[in-house]
């Protein structure tokens, strides 16, 4: 049996994040770690070590998938370039819209206390009071939590239908970090003339 490491338990953090956000939406700010760490690892480490080893969501889907997944290969379109980059573009547009809503609240618009699933459906939940924080900070938290819950739901559905970590195929962060690594190594190849390998892979 494979030896377990501390990072094999990061799924607990992912689960805790989703639960804590329901009790205080400001915990949603922690979601920034899930956005920034993979990008920093790709930009400075030139690898997808976050996806490969430290992604709590991937681990959680793997664990649940052992019991619940149909374990069927996903349809071809899911791994196609146009779908993966198309989904990334859609996600970025939605992220931009969320930032704009945050700016609107910062500029004086009233706080919109709602978490939406799949960008449309309002989650029926009595959100606790967030008056201790600036309205714009609370608005941003609602937005981030909407994104996190939506992507978790999509990951869960594709875990059930296809293979446990089917989310990894079209995860916008995964697509983005792979794109960064491709660009980075292409540049290094031009300079050093060696293959696509970084110290983080060894």
């Amino acid at each position: 049996m494979k030896q377990k490491h501390w990072y094999d338990y990061l799924w607990i953090g992912e689960l805790a994040y989703l639960v804590l956000g329901l009790f205080n939406i400001l915990f949603a700010w922690l979601g920034m770690l899930f956005f920034t760490i993979p990008l920093l690892v790709a930009l400075f480490g030139g690898s997808k070590a976050y996806c490969n080893r430290y992604c709590g969501r991937g681990q959680l889907l793997n664990l649940l998938g052992k019991k619940l997944s149909r374990n069927q290969p996903p349809p071809r379109f899911l791994r196609s370039r146009w779908f993966r980059y198309g989904f990334l573009t859609f996600f970025m547009v939605m992220f931009g819209r969320m930032l704009y809503q945050t700016y609107q609240v910062f500029a004086g618009m009233p706080l919109r206390q709602a978490v939406t699933l799949l960008w449309v459906f309002r989650l029926p939940w009595q959100w606790p009071d967030v008056s201790m924080a600036s309205p714009w900070a609370a608005q941003y938290a609602y937005g981030v939590f909407s994104i996190m819950l939506t992507s978790t739901l999509l990951g869960f559905v594709t875990m059930l239908l296809f293979r446990p970590r089917s989310w990894c195929v079209y995860c916008p962060m995964g697509t983005m970090t792979q794109g960064i690594c491709q660009l980075k190594h292409r540049k290094e190849d031009l300079v050093h003339g060696d293959g696509a390998e970084s110290p983080a892979d060894r």
Partner: peptide, 18 residues
């Protein structure tokens, strides 16, 4: 997609994500 699922289950550590 370089997710690393294959490398994590390989019993011979024959796969790496380049």
């Amino acid at each position: 997609v370089a997710c690393g699922c294959c490398a994590s289950v390989c019993p011979r550590q024959a796969i790496r994500i380049a």
